[in-house]
């Protein structure tokens, strides 16, 4: 591999990791959302490198474009408050970090022991993943999942509308109120 390639991949990986860290550590929710957007875009670049332009564009449009926008709307709607630093649950922080580290270690172990392919794959041809080919595969082999996904989206839409509607003045049809902390 050429040095340039190495440099490019390293840079992209670095950005991904740094933005991830930024996401999980920023106290301000807006900053976290923005870090995530950066993450998504960088991952889209990685997709392009891997020969999946359609997916990369879908990533940018769907993920970074609509989902994150939705997130930002909700953050602003809820007046994302600054929650106190102190961790009320005992041992949560320690155990959390411990478990994540364990997970990481195990995965590395897994890769080393089972031998993931370490050689590079061949480069892909430009005709590998054109919209045509993807479309063909989508509507031929994966037609049923495609239609089901449509159903899922419909359900999500209906669900979202139902859960956030205003109760009518006579209180009929409102969601059952969540009981207060005091009465358990």
């Amino acid at each position: 591999m050429s040095l340039g390639l190495i440099f490019m991949y390293s840079a992209l990986a670095l950005v991904v990791v740094v933005s991830g860290i930024g996401l999980i550590t920023s106290r301000n929710a807006i900053y976290a959302a923005l870090f995530l957007v950066l993450n998504f875009i960088t991952v889209a670049l990685l997709y392009i490198v891997l020969g999946a332009p359609f997916i990369a564009l879908a990533q940018v449009t769907v993920y970074a474009g609509s989902i994150m926008v939705l997130f930002l709307f909700v953050i602003m709607l809820l007046g994302a408050e600054q929650l106190p630093i102190a961790e009320p649950l005992r041992g949560q922080r320690v155990l959390g970090i411990l478990l994540a580290a364990a997970f990481l270690a195990e995965m590395v172990l897994f890769v080393l022991l089972r031998g993931a392919p370490t050689v590079a794959g061949q480069a892909v041809s430009p005709e590998f993943s054109t919209p045509t080919t993807i479309g063909m595969l989508l509507f031929e082999r994966y037609l049923l999942p495609f239609e089901m996904t449509a159903g899922v989206l419909l359900a999500a839409t209906v669900g979202a509308i139902f859960m956030t509607r205003q109760p009518r003045p006579d209180r009929k049809g409102a969601l059952p109120a969540v009981p207060e902390e005091g009465k358990e």
């Binding site: 991949y9 990791v17 991830g20 994540a100 990481l104 890769v111 370490t118 794959g121």
Partner: peptide, 16 residues
Amino acid sequence: MPMSYFIGLSVVMFAM
């Protein structure tokens, strides 16, 4: 591009 590279990156993202 060695696969282990991408696997490693993916795992790190997941852990985060």
